[in-house]
Write a protein that binds this DNA or RNA. Structure first.
Lengths: 244, 244
DNA sequence: TCAAAAGTGTTGACATTACACCCATGT
DNA sequence: ACATGGGTGTAATGTCAACACTTTTGA
């Protein structure tokens, strides 16, 4: 009897941003031949773990995040539950599971979470063992159904970032408008006009300019802004698209 | 050993529409005292079932739908996975589970599906036993966390119907624009201007007018339309809101 | 002939796009 | 002094909201 639920796991797709790239945090998976020590394969997976008995699935996801990034209190949202019977049935995955987790059910349902972090805050030592950032548009070989999972998480992020102010989760508290614009351009894969972008931001009362400028840059220093969740909650209004 | 996975179920929130009401299909749950035969409580739940071993969760949801409505091939989409540890812990729910399913785990994770049907097609006999339609704005007492579940499914439906042409799943194949407008007004809980609505519909090439009019109505008969998924797929284009 | 819903166009307000020049700083 | 990115406004276009009268049918 294990302390975890045999056929239920959570997987966290953790996104980070570094000025002009959107990255995903991935963990290396390597299977060695137990006798020769030879490497059988190497690939990567997102951060996952089985749900423990008596644990809420959201708490399981928080636990995984804390383990892998050292961070609490970060943006985390379910985006899809993966329940295909053959999702662990690729050859590499079967070798891996038989070698490492022979007792495990081979039909594991996984609840996928999308999470956004300020990558500067992810503890470097955790990150430098076998966990590291990869650009979403240049992913390594991935285990299980994690390529699909990352693509669906990205789709979720793109939809969501258009409608809710979650982009700030990927930025430092203080940011310039150029950085914010970069973020939108990078995540959405589009170009935006600088003046129009700033006009739009100006209407958003919850993006607040500080009495503070960038320092040490070899050009006109930019104004520094913060995002106020408070002001957002109090000023947001429903927008009715009805845009089939 | 049961043929189903002990702690994993699917629940289908099935919506139907009848001209001016949005309804949910619910099943009566009644617990009687085994000795006196007295009714201990009565309430309602959405359609759910445990996932079978070796069954994909989407297939489990399709199976539940087929069982409860007799329908195949209907709109069905995951909207959230419910994994709180106390989701079955209300007093009624515990009595029910202890009485009827004493072997069942008391931490069941449930994948919630939102489904849309043309309620005229739901087989009446299935519907008239202990399963029936309730208006979403006048729900009876609900078991488990199904009130939350229905509210979240409704939220999902509202978001989705603004962006994708899924409303047609709730209508007969042939419909008038007034009926379509009613549907939007009912689901979204808003009033729409008739002329503006029709202007918008006119731009949607995938809403196609037939050479056919309403019959037997005591007023000017309306033009009849159909929705073409085909044309939709070929003509849709991305719309970039960026509407935080 | 009456009741009931179908059908139809124009105008003003607002939002979105496209676009080019000067400014402040570090080297 | 030069290179680099920061900062700003206007005009044209497209989109959305508001609004009232005539038509067709069955009773």
């Amino acid at each position: 009897m294990h302390p975890y639920i045999n056929n239920l796991s959570v997987d966290c797709v953790i996104f980070g941003f570094d000025n002009n790239t959107l990255n995903v945090l991935l963990t290396k998976r390597q299977l060695d031949d137990p006798e020769t020590g030879e490497v059988i394969f190497t690939d990567y997976t997102v951060q996952g773990h089985h749900v423990l008995k008596g644990e809420r699935i959201n708490d399981a996801a928080l636990r995984v995040l804390k383990d892998k990034t050292g961070l609490d209190n970060i943006y985390l949202e379910q985006f899809y539950t993966f329940g295909d019977t053959n999702r662990l049935h690729k050859e590499r995955d079967q070798l891996w599971l038989k070698g490492k987790f022979p007792m495990m059910s081979d039909h594991v349902i996984s609840v996928g979470y999308c999470s956004l972090v300020n990558s500067a805050k992810v503890q470097p030592d955790l990150q430098h063992q076998d966990t590291s950032w990869f650009p979403v548009d240049n992913l390594p070989l991935l285990g299980f159904d994690h390529e699909t999972m990352i693509m669906m998480a990205l789709e979720f992020l793109r939809d969501k970032i258009r409608k809710e102010p979650i982009g700030f989760e990927l930025l430092p508290e203080k940011f310039t408008l150029t950085l914010l614009q970069n973020l939108y351009e990078t995540v959405l894969g589009i170009k935006l006009d600088r003046r129009n972008f700033r006009k739009k931001v100006a209407q958003m009362k919850y993006i607040i300019s500080l009495d503070e400028k960038q320092k040490g840059v070899a050009h006109k220093p930019a104004q520094v802004f913060i995002f106020s969740k408070d002001v957002y909650e109090r000023t947001k209004k429903e927008k009715l698209d009805f845009s089939i």
